[in-house]
Design a protein around this nucleic acid. Structure first.
Length: 517
RNA sequence: GGGCCCGUAGCUCAGCGGUUAGAGCAGGGGACUCAUAAUCCCUUGGUCGUGUGUUCGAAUCACACCGGGCCUACCA
């Protein structure tokens, strides 16, 4: 019994630093999946946003000499601007400082408190300011010290509130075992099952206000704010209308839940999204669990991207250089969903030129150009008795469309794109074998030329429509030039007699292969 | 320490027990001219990380080792 709406979310990003390529990849992936569902006629709700609370935000703000709220607002604006630039078409936007979110989180916390799932306890120990966590002896290095990766380490003793995670652990283990599709890809599900079997203890969910003022106040103990988990994870439900009191504004939770895909990185599956989140839902009384789509990372030269290593790639600059859609295409085409990949700008450029400029862009360009040159842009209808090669191309196109959707259904965007490129290659081959420029010289072959042009426009239109979720703006432009603006049908047969194509203009201008020094 | 993944043409990868190991890109040759010096055809190129083993037969299975990466622990 799944809701009618396809509900997809991304992790919400921490507003302590501007977005990098990993943030962009995750949002593009979710956007592509959301767009594909929409274009196949399904109702979709795509939720993304930012996590504005927490110690790191507070510290970054202090360092910058501004209030946490102001700092978070400025970084939030950068994320929003990037999503705008990259064409991320989200339906809901989550900000953890939103009063509606705060009210719902407090409502859940109060309930858990009332039903005895929260308790207060005193804890003392070494605390990493950078990682925002207490350290144990296992965090010490070989020399028995806390290494530099923990940043400043201080000894503190304080009371805090704890959530009875351990109480629900057996339930979670059963849920994972009974639902093989809980986590995609499956090998991540195995990792999670192993982790759940080992994970013990409860979860600290608060910080005293004396130490962290920037957060959601515990309704039953005003001296504390809730720390990260309930604040950040609950967003997937609260911004979908969970426990909403205002009626309007937020969506109807019953319509959206369960979430069909929480798109997250492999680093936050365990323990946050794979353990804490489902247990929080269960404890709060939500019975139907969401599903997790865990993606891999873009590495750089085999190494992990990190600010400290100084190898951060700026997606904003890449979008300027290759276009938002050029970047989107590369991010979807050169990685297998769930796996890691290596980010390489030379490869991005090579793919742009080979796949986008030469194959797809040029196919549309030459097609429209010939239609205009030989038929003043107006096509005859498809002939009643088609030629063999036309029938063959149509069959290949239909097969490509089927394989495209099958791959998308399993989140295999790169495989889906492969299918489209087979169609594009076949269409370019059809141009060569049918040689319209020869047909145009012989009036006796006029009917055949009509057929060839129709077939080419059909093939090009279908390719552009299929590719639309990945490259929405470029595909719109291609479709417009073909005279099919807005026609995203994933099947053959759009051309009617008298169809007019538009102007031919390169949508993916070829890039110079040399890099300017 | 335990567990997992990866190592196949210059590059990115597919193949995962059975004909002479494949694709795309890059390189070489040719054709064509509608097109973004694009396209199409042909082609060069590999001891399938190393070794041993199982098998009629291994890139494909097993064991060990080398190399790269990840997760997770100081319990034998």
């Amino acid at each position: 019994m799944s809701a009618q709406t396809f509900f997809i979310t991304t992790a919400i990003d921490y507003t302590n630093a501007p977005p990098h390529i990993g943030h962009a990849y995750e949002k593009v992936l979710a956007d592509v999946i959301a767009r594909w569902h929409r274009e196949r006629g399904r109702s979709v709700f795509f939720l993304t946003g930012v996590d504005q609370h927490g110690q790191k935000v507070q510290q970054s703000a202090e360092k910058a000499g501004v209030a946490p709220a102001e700092f978070a607002r400025d970084i939030t604006a950068k994320f929003k601007a990037l999503w705008q630039k990259l064409g991320i078409a989200y339906d809901g936007w989550a900000e953890t400082t939103d009063p509606r979110h705060i009210a719902a989180v407090q409502d859940v916390l109060q309930q858990l408190h009332d039903q005895g799932d929260l308790y207060k306890a005193r804890h003392s120990g070494h605390y990493s300011v950078r990682q925002e966590q207490f350290l144990t002896d296992k965090d010490r290095n070989a020399q028995g010290e806390f290494g530099p990766e923990w940043g400043e380490v201080v000894f503190i003793e304080e009371e805090n509130w704890y959530f009875r995670l351990s109480k629900y652990r057996p339930w979670l283990a059963e849920h994972i075992a009974a639902h093989p599709d809980f986590v995609f890809p499956s090998f991540r599900g195995n990792e999670l099952a192993n982790a759940v079997a080992k994970e013990a203890g409860d979860l600290c969910i608060s910080r005293p206000k004396s130490r962290l003022g920037w957060g959601i106040e515990l309704p039953f103990d005003r001296d504390f704010v809730t720390y990260v988990w309930f604040d950040a994870l609950m967003n997937y439900a609260t911004f979908a209308g969970y426990r909403a009191t205002n009626g309007g504004q937020l969506p109807d939770f019953q319509q959206l839940w369960p979430c069909d895909a929480h798109v997250i990185g492999k680093d936050i599956l365990i323990p946050a999204h794979g353990i804490y989140w489902p247990i929080m839902l269960k404890a709060a009384g939500v019975e139907v669990m969401p599903r997790l789509l865990v993606h891999g990372w873009w590495n750089l030269g085999g190494a992990k991207v990190s600010k400290s290593a100084g190898n951060v790639v700026d997606p904003d600059a890449l979008a300027d250089r290759y276009g938002a859609d050029g970047l989107r295409y590369y991010l979807m085409r050169d990685i297998a969903t769930g796996q890691d990949a290596d980010f390489n700008e030379e490869r991005l450029k090579a793919r742009y030129n080979a796949d986008l400029a030469n194959d797809l862009g040029n196919l549309v360009n030459r097609t429209v150009s010939m239609a205009r040159r030989y038929r003043e842009g107006t096509l005859a209808g498809a002939p009643s008795d088609q030629s063999e090669d036309a029938i063959a191309l149509q069959a290949l196109a239909a097969d490509a469309a089927v394989r495209f959707d099958a791959a998308m259904q399993n989140y295999q965007v790169h495989t889906a794109l492969d299918a489209v490129w087979e169609l594009i290659a076949a269409a370019n081959g059809f141009v060569e074998s049918s040689a319209p420029w020869k047909l145009a010289k012989d009036p006796a072959l006029s009917g055949r030329l009509d057929e060839v042009l129709v077939v080419l426009v059909e093939a090009a239109r279908l390719a552009a429509a299929l590719v639309h979720p990945v490259m929405p703006r470029a595909a719109d432009e291609l479709l417009g030039q073909l005279g099919f603006a807005g026609n995203l049908a994933n099947s053959w047969g759009a051309v009617a007699a008298g169809h007019c194509v538009g102007e031919a203009k390169p949508v993916f201008p070829r890039l110079e292969t040399d890099v300017a020094a």
